[in-house]
Amino acid sequence: MKHLTPTIILVCLVTAIVEILYRLSYWDAQSIPPASVILQTITENQDAFVDAFTSTLKLSMQSLALSFILGFTLAVIFSLNDWIKRAVFPLAIFFQTVPIIAIAPLLVIYFGYGPQTILAAAVFVSLFPILANTLVGLDTIDKNLLELFQVYRQNAWHTLFYLKIPGSYYFIFSGLRISSGLAVIGVVAGEFVAGGGLGALIDTSRTQQRIDLVFASLIGLAVIGLLQIMLLNGINLLITRWRPFKL
């Protein structure tokens, strides 16, 4: 937490300056609303805001979990079978280059309006980093350790579970961290087209010129991102306390 102190000080300072300028009537609250206005907006629209926040948080977490399961499983399959990897992995890279905003309308056609479309959009963007990182981890295990498993005649499954997967821990985890941010982006993109959550709140606030509500939603999204990272860091701490993955 100590290393975040300069950031926290900077944010507090900027917020305080904006607030003071606003109180002295030197700040246009219509362009960038000060903290007090945003807080007031959140209080006034508490029910709608909390609903939207919860819905986005839930879908973001669900999509991250789904991306992890899918990405991890695919990476394991790819590492076990080179042919499948060579056939499918380039397609994954190709789809990674297609912007989610361009795909989202298509997802609405396939899945309709609702959480399933939002989940699909979020998984679409957050799957790749987990898949790619896990694959790099599984494929770059120390040659000596692989030979060691060969010497002790461990079969492919044994090598996978006792060497490759634990040996890829940090790769998998860094993929999860990247995907955690992307999941929020994917959910918002999905919500723009399929409705619901903070994404839809931003969209309707935009049409009503409610800059304060847009900012409140943006802060809500940042909090979701932060919560997810904190959760992941907590899990990482628990796991690495149980088992160290570095020498």
């Binding site: 120390d142 000596n144 350790l145 030979e147 010497v151 006792y162 040996g167 570095k246």
Partner: peptide, 21 residues
Amino acid sequence: GFVFQESCLLPWLNVFENVAL
């Protein structure tokens, strides 16, 4: 048995589990 130049121990296994390999 094979002993490499590096000790080649798995960091996530304790001494007993490494030997068990």
